[in-house]
Design a protein around this nucleic acid. Structure first.
Length: 427
RNA sequence: GCGAGUGUAGCUCAGUCGGUUAGAGCGCCAGUUUGUGGUACUGGAUGUCGUCGGUUCGAUUCCGAUCACUCGCCCCA
C-alpha cells in the first residue's frame, strides 16, 4: 500500500472499469442522437455566481458542497457540481435562444465536496440532456423516454424504476408550501432535528425524509396534488398520458421533490435498490424559470442527469474487449523483428488492432497473445520471410496455415469475421 | 456535517490470547529440451500488517490520534 493516495473522494478509473464506463457514455450518446440531442460541452469550472445564483441559496449543494476557490486574479471560481446551470449559461452566452428548441447532450466530470461513499464521490461523472424552449409536456415525455431508452439499452430494464411527481407551477407550489409549513409547524415536536432545520430552508424536502418519526408526521400532511391549480393539473395529466402512450411504466411518488430551487412541474427519478443509499441513478425535471433567473429570456426547459459510475456498477456484464491480432516474430533476429514491426504497422493502417510483444522467446510471446485474448497470431520467422508469407494461427481452434503476404489482410479479415459470427450466432 | 465499522502481499482474505523467520487462494514471474499459447506439474518473489504517536523488555497484535474506504443519516447522480 503506497502512501501516494489520490485525493479523498477521487479515484483512478483503470482499464477494466473504464470499459464499463465508456459503454455507459457511448450508449447514452448514441441514444441521445436518436432523439435529436447534439453533444456539447461546457467548461468544468465557471464563475461561482453561475451556480450560487441558480441553484438557490438554500440548497445543500450551494451551502456546503461546492468546490469554490479564488483564482490568481481573485475571481471566485467553482468546479461545476452539475451541468444544467452551465448549459443554461452557455445557452445565454452564445445567444442560442433564437433557434429553439435547443437540445443538448453532455458527458463529463462533476465535483461536489461530499462525504464519500459507495456510488458517491467528490469527482464523479454524469451524462445528461437538456431540452430548452418547449413548454409543452411532450418535451418532458421525450426526455424521459430517452432516459428509459438508455437504461433499457444498458440492460437495466427490470432493475430500475421510474418515479414521477409534479411540483406544480410557482403559484401552486407557493400555496402548498404555505399549507405544509403551517401543518408541520403544528407538529414541530415530532420532527427530527434535520427536518426542523429544513422547515426554514426547504420544507418540501421534509417529504423525502427517511426518519421514521418524520414519516409518521408526513403521512398525515397535506399533499401537493390538492393545491395544484388547473393549469398545473392539466400539465401533469398530459405528462402521464404521454408516458402511457409510449408504454413507459412509472409509479407516482407524491413525496418526490428536487433539491434545487429552479425546478417546477415535472420531477422524476429512475431508482434502483441495488446501490444502497445511493439508489438514484438518473434524475431530472422541468425548470422553466432557470434561464430567466440567469438573465436570459424567459425560456422553459426540461432535462435530466445520470451518474455514470452508478450506472456502471449496475451493469451485469461489462462489454467484451476487442480481440486483437498478435504479431509474433519467431526468435530475436533483428531482421525478423524489423519485418514484424513493418508488418504490424501495415496491418494497423489496414484497420486491424495489432499487438506485438517486443521480447522473449516464442512461448512467452504466445502466452502474451493468449492473455490479450488475441484471436489470431501472425507468426513471422525466417522460413516465412524467405517465402514472403506468414503463418496464421487461430488461437481458439489451434489451426494454422501459411499465407502469402499478398493475401494477408484478406485472410485475416475472414478469420475475424468468423469470430463475430461466433459471438452473435452461437446461442 | 453526524453516528458506526473496517484497514495484513497486485486482488480476496486468514492469523498473531503482545514475543523474535506473517500465511492461503487467485494473480504475477521462471522452468517442464533450442519456432507455438490456453490445461497440468515444479519452483520463485512478494508486505515498513494504512500512517504517526503512546504503553511495554518487546507491538502487526493493546491504547490514542490521523488518513482512507465501507454502512446508516444527510444529500443527491
Amino acid at each position: 500500500m503506497s502512501s501516494l493516495q489520490p485525493v479523498r473522494g477521487t479515484h483512478d478509473i483503470l482499464p477494466d472499469e473504464m470499459r464499463a464506463f465508456r459503454h455507459v457514455v457511448d450508449t447514452s450518446r448514441m441514444a441521445a442522437a436518436l432523439y435529436g440531442f447534439a453533444e456539447m460541452a461546457t467548461p468544468a469550472f465557471e464563475f461561482s455566481g453561475v451556480f450560487a445564483r441558480t441553484l438557490g441559496d438554500t440548497s445543500d449543494i450551494v451551502t456546503k458542497e461546492m468546490y469554490t476557490f479564488s483564482d490568481r486574479k481573485g475571481e471566485s471560481i467553482t468546479l461545476r457540481p452539475e451541468n444544467t446551470a452551465g448549459i443554461a449559461r452557455a445557452f445565454i452566452s452564445n445567444g442560442l435562444s433564437n433557434d429553439l428548441p435547443f437540445k443538448a447532450f453532455y458527458a463529463g466530470p462533476m465535483f461536489r465536496y461530499e462525504r464519500p461513499q459507495k456510488g458517491r464521490q467528490r469527482q464523479f461523472h454524469q451524462v445528461g440532456v437538456e431540452l430548452l424552449g418547449v413548454a409543452e409536456p411532450q418535451a418532458d415525455v421525450e426526455v424521459i423516454a430517452l432516459g428509459r431508452h438508455i437504461l433499457d439499452a444498458l440492460g437495466l430494464k427490470g432493475a430500475v424504476t421510474l418515479e414521477i411527481n409534479t411540483l406544480g407551477d410557482p403559484e401552486s407550489r407557493e400555496a402548498y408550501r404555505g399549507a405544509l409549513v403551517k401543518f408541520l409547524s403544528g407538529r414541530l415536536a415530532e420532527l427530527s432535528a434535520d427536518s426542523r432545520d429544513r422547515l426554514e430552508r426547504n420544507p418540501l424536502r421534509i417529504l423525502d425524509s427517511k426518519d421514521e418519526g418524520d414519516r409518521a408526521v408526513i403521512a398525515g400532511a397535506p399533499l401537493l396534488g390538492e393545491y395544484l391549480n388547473a393549469a398545473s393539473k392539466a400539465f401533469y395529466e398530459e405528462l402521464k398520458n404521454g408516458l402511457l402512450d409510449l408504454g413507459l411504466d412509472f409509479i407516482e411518488n407524491p413525496h418526490l421533490v428536487r433539491g434545487l430551487d429552479y425546478y417546477g412541474h415535472t420531477a422524476f427519478e429512475f431508482t434502483t435498490d441495488a446501490l444502497g443509499a445511493q439508489g438514484t441513478v438518473m434524475a431530472g425535471g422541468r425548470y422553466d424559470g432557470l434561464v430567466k433567473l440567469m438573465g436570459g429570456p424567459q425560456t422553459p426547459g426540461v432535462g435530466w442527469a445520470a451518474g455514470v459510475e452508478r450506472l456502471s456498477m449496475l451493469l451485469a456484464e461489462p462489454p467484451a474487449e476487442g480481440r486483437p491480432v498478435a504479431m509474433i516474430p519467431a526468435g530475436n533476429d533483428p531482421v525478423i523483428k524489423r519485418e514484424a514491426m513493418i508488418l504490424s504497422e501495415r496491418l494497423r493502417r489496414a484497420g486491424f488492432a495489432v499487438d506485438m510483444a517486443f521480447s522473449g522467446n516464442m512461448g512467452k510471446r504466445m502466452k502474451r497473445a493468449n492473455k490479450l485474448s488475441a484471436k489470431v497470431a501472425v507468426i513471422l520467422g525466417e522460413d516465412e520471410r524467405l517465402a514472403r508469407a506468414v503463418t496464421l494461427r487461430d488461437l481458439d481452434s489451434g489451426e494454422q496455415a501459411t499465407v502469402s503476404l499478398d493475401r494477408l489482410e484478406e485472410t485475416l479479415a475472414r478469420m475475424l469475421v468468423n469470430l463475430s459470427e461466433d459471438a452473435f450466432g452461437g446461442i
